[in-house]
Amino acid sequence: MDMNRSDKPQSSIPPENLFHTDTPAARIALLGLLTALSVIMGYIEARIPLPLPVPGIKLGLCNIVIVFVLYRFGGLRALPVSLIRVLVIGLLFGTPVSMLYSASGAVLSLLGMVLLRKTGRFSVIGVSGAGGALHALGQILVAAAFTGGTGIFRYLPVLLLAGEFCGALIGFVDLILLRRLKSRRNEHVL
């Protein structure tokens, strides 16, 4: 899919300068850049509607940025990036309702990933895969609350699987990304 396309902008950034953020200003600048990137990914994702009766449900391609920020900067920094992304995408392409359930998906997914990562037992792939599934769950829960019906849960199994699969792929891409950037940093530092 657009996994390959989407990681290009990041690999074209000279990592020596941008990913070794010693000063708060540099860090904020980089996080802002990453937030913008996740908004772009959200835009791309909004252009691909899923064949579902529920509008705005996403597979969570933006998690490619969120997982990266989580592993590079920690959960406390990933949360604002994720929430700003939800806000901006919601204002640009969504409705207040769709914003609410993407917020729910984003928070649940990030919370789960933070906890799973803390255990130290799982690699990026496992953490991100579970994050993708939680992303789907969070969205469905709010959508169900809004329709006041349970009919929407019928789509949960397929969304969980799709989210998990995409999440695992995203984790794989992020793993490569994190490794690449790490090794370059080592070259630079050592």
Binding site: L116, R121, F122, S123, I125, G126, G129, A130, L160
Partner: peptide, 15 residues
């Protein structure tokens, strides 16, 4: 390892 046994169990559990 890139992909650990624990990952496999986690993903299988969700699936």
């Amino acid at each position: 390892k890139t992909f650990r046994r624990a990952d496999l169990w986690l993903l299988l559990l969700i699936a």
